[in-house]
Design a protein around this nucleic acid. Structure first.
Lengths: 129, 129
DNA sequence: GTCACTGCAAAGGCTTTGCATGTAC
DNA sequence: GTACATGCAAAGCCTTTGCAGTGAC
């Protein structure tokens, strides 16, 4: 992944790398742990500010899984998440399932949907066995 | 609304009243403000503990609107929310739109959906004018 | 050399915990 | 009287802010 940042610094490069290599949304803590594992003694404030920058540039998306904190992932094709409440694994579900619904909402309620959050909580295949 | 609580106290009664009279999910702060307006000098910890109790009894549902805090509403017919990003007004959308989708997820991914979060963000009718 | 980024310390908001006191029953 | 609920203080997380110092360009 390449960011169009005004300045390219070790912290930003590492955060970009981590987001690129993460299959699923990560929280600030795991970013910091990654940076430490690379012996980059980055401050958490830098992480927050880098994420803010990426959010504003619309390179990153913020999601919530009911944990009392945010998670972040690179913008990619529209998708949602399957979150196993047992083992905490996260899977993707691709698709634009709500497009028709959003038109209906427009027609019935006059409400213009700009975006939505949709996450599924349940038990993954492995944990059912 | 009537709670099946082991003990009925002024704080619990007032919180139940407030939740019953709230058309949309409320945060802890607004519950406390309501209690103060009724001259009940309830501690916020009591509010949190009452909400915890109601969540465990499945009388209340917890939702997130990307605000960095939780909101709570009485359990009622399955529905989702339209959140105006301009005036912050919240509307309901009734319906079980995702039932088919959840079966598909079951068949395709083997993931058993127990519940989901779905909220729509956009511009309400009034704010479009 | 400049301007943007970083680090540190501190604070702010939401939520939880421990423990002694109070109260519904 | 007893078990449960409350209040207070304190702490735990996550996140944000201010300001001085550093580094990318």
């Amino acid at each position: 992944m390449k960011f169009v940042m005004t300045k390219s610094t070790p912290a930003r490069i590492a955060i970009a790398d981590f987001l690129s290599s993460s299959a699923y949304p990560v929280d600030i803590g795991s970013i910091i742990r990654f940076l430490r594992s690379k012996n980059l003694k980055t401050n958490k404030v830098t992480v927050y500010r880098t994420i803010d920058f990426l959010l504003q540039e619309d390179l990153v998306k913020r999601v919530e899984f009911g944990e009392g904190k945010y998670r972040y992932e690179l913008q990619k094709d529209h998708h949602h998440h399957l979150i196993c409440t047992n083992c905490k694994k996260i899977e993707d579900v691709e698709g634009e399932y709500l497009r028709d619904l959003e038109s209906k909402i427009r027609n019935k309620k006059g409400f213009l949907v700009k975006n939505h959050s949709l996450e599924f909580f349940g038990i993954c295949k492995q944990c059912q066995q």
